[in-house]
Amino acid sequence: IRCIGVSNRDFVEGMSGGTWVDVVLEHGGCVTVMAQDKPTVDIELVTTTVSNMAEVRSYCYEASISDMASDSRCPTQGEAYLDKQSDTQYVCKRTLVDRGWGNGCGLFGKGSLVTCAKFTCSKKMTGKSIQPENLEYRIMLSVHGSQHSGMIVNDTGYETDENRAKVEVTPNSPRAEATLGGFGSLGLDCEPRTGLDFSDLYYLTMNNKHWLVHKEWFHDIPLPWHAGADTGTPHWNNKEALVEFKDAHAKRQTVVVLGSQEGAVHTALAGALEAEMDGAKGKLFSGHLKCRLKMDKLRLKGVSYSLCTAAFTFTKVPAETLHGTVTVEVQYAGTDGPCKIPVQMAVDMQTLTPVGRLITANPVITESTENSKMMLELDPPFGDSYIVIGVGDKKITHHWHRSGSTIGKAFEATVRGAKRMAVLGDTAWDFGSVGGVFNSLGKGIHQIFGAAFKSLFGGMSWFSQILIGTLLVWLGLNTKNGSISLTCLALGGVMIFLSTAVSA
């Protein structure tokens, strides 16, 4: 259960009878995928790494000078000259100064003066180019299975845990398959586009800190620079940016070097996208990844198990997540596992009318040892309800109150669905055939309105939902006002479609 501690969480529900669903994975976010007769899966884009970055340009932001020398000439005696002028490691300046009897010249006039100092770069920052084909995306998957609280967001041991898996995709191999043991396998067909235009970005490294910066900004930095990788004795261009020549006297000129420019660069980098280094690879934390999940090989585990009949206890007080759902960790005293956990939410304890829904599909106890633990997640209705676990006299209950409203949740879900469709863009549509167009249209309606429909009408039977949709269509056909007619027709059509397409 990876997503319960992530604030940016998206719930995606598969269409009834569908074998695939489109998701948008982004750094700092987590996606929970639910479908009829399929286990619930949490998917998170953990890291995006980039390798084989080529150094484009380096800037010196802290330097020192040494070996200063000057040469001067009297008027009419030609130009002052130093051998160091031809050495690229030196920074030199030529000027004219007033000369006369007082400073060793027989004539009054302008004399030539040249001053040089050896330039040494102490600290530099480097910009590297990123090729999209060198990106690698690491995705962690977790099935809502027989897990306890100690396994949440624990990325170790996934090789031997059938509840978890790690997959890596690249532009050259965008397809992967996550093996989930008894739950089958989940196929991923990803489109490795981060949403960032790397043709316009460089990877900047300064003092063990890293950013993504725009090329134009990078090339306009007014500091000494050299092109390409460091060859040991780089040729620094624009050395004068960190060196200041003071007022010249008759035979000498003082040279000083400016202080470190790291603070000024940090100020200019305010708002830039931060990154990290992992050995020789860069780690990015921006952008998104679009994936199509193929769920035809994914299956529920323990459908044929019998119900657990022994007593359950709450190991922890049920807690609310950031998303309005409830996490419950229970301990089973029996030894008759594997068995299914009898769990439901009810409005009252007399009729036990089921409300809400299970995020953890078909929760089971897989071990036959005593005191096995299991964590599950529920989506309670707004208002008061009861969490009921167990059967008969051994069942345990917990009162729950959820604040908020169904309308607010439906609106929030619609906005999130619209954002998801905007990110998917043209990849969500198939114009290759008439059937493809209608299929894409259905998927689009489901992406945007599916979660809201589930919130508003999830407790009704599909037949009642179709009746309401048919009534809206009838009202649309018999209303003389054009805008009201079109609105009723659209709402009725969407409702009829979703009542037959969205899983219960």
Rank of each mutant, 00 (worst) to 15 (best):
G279Q: 12
T335K: 12
N134E: 07
F449N: 10
Q331K: 12
D348P: 00
R2S: 10
R164M: 14
H398M: 08
N207I: 12
T205K: 10
G109C: 07
S16R: 07
L141M: 11
Q77I: 05
L289P: 02
T321R: 06
Q85Y: 04
P338T: 03
F285K: 05
R57L: 02
D200G: 14
S306M: 05
F218N: 09
T321Q: 06
K443Y: 11
P234E: 03
S286H: 08
V153N: 14
K301C: 03
L300H: 06
L471S: 12
S70H: 06
D189Y: 05
R138A: 11
M495V: 15
E79V: 08
M34L: 14
I1K: 00
H214Q: 09
F198V: 05
H226G: 00
C488P: 00
P338Q: 03
T351M: 11
H210T: 01
H401C: 10
E44G: 09
N439A: 14
W211K: 08
V494P: 00
W20P: 01
Q350A: 07
Q261S: 09
T115H: 09
E244N: 14
W211G: 07
D87V: 05
Q89K: 05
E276C: 14
R175D: 09
L378D: 06
A117R: 00
P342E: 07
R73Y: 09
I152S: 15
Q465D: 10
K283F: 15
D278R: 06
Y158K: 01
Q147T: 00
P363D: 04
M34D: 09
N481S: 15
G111E: 10
K294P: 04
T414P: 02
V167L: 13
P234T: 11
T160S: 14
W462A: 07
W474Q: 09
R138P: 00
N103R: 02
N154K: 11
S142M: 06
Y90G: 08
T500K: 15
T406P: 02
P174S: 10
F312L: 10
H210F: 07
G279H: 07
L293F: 11
L45P: 02
T47W: 01
E412K: 13
W211M: 11
T40L: 01
G102P: 02
V23T: 12
G493Y: 01
Y81N: 12
D384G: 07
F218A: 04
D278W: 00
T470G: 13
G14M: 11
G106D: 01
T427Q: 04
L472K: 04
V255H: 01
L196V: 15
G17W: 07
K294H: 07
K251P: 01
E177S: 04
L204F: 12
G181W: 06
K290Y: 04
M495H: 13
N478M: 13
I389S: 05
Y90F: 09
N8Y: 08
F285L: 12
H323Y: 11
A80C: 09
I359M: 13
W211L: 05
E26G: 12
S66Y: 14
D379S: 01
A422Y: 07
G493V: 14
G337P: 13
G282Q: 03
K215D: 05
A451P: 13
V494T: 10
G392L: 07
G157T: 08
V303S: 14
S499K: 12
G279A: 14
E159C: 01
L298T: 02
V255F: 15
G109K: 06
M15P: 00
V153T: 10
A311P: 10
F314H: 01
D220P: 03
A54F: 04
L307D: 00
F453V: 12
K118E: 09
R73A: 08
K281Q: 13
G493E: 04
N154A: 04
F449L: 06
G29W: 12
A35V: 06
S64R: 15
N172Y: 15
V330T: 05
S372G: 15
T48D: 08
V243P: 00
T325D: 08
E168R: 00
A268Q: 13
V326C: 08
P354E: 00
R175Q: 10
D230R: 14
N478G: 14
A504M: 12
P354A: 14
D98L: 03
A227P: 14
V169I: 14
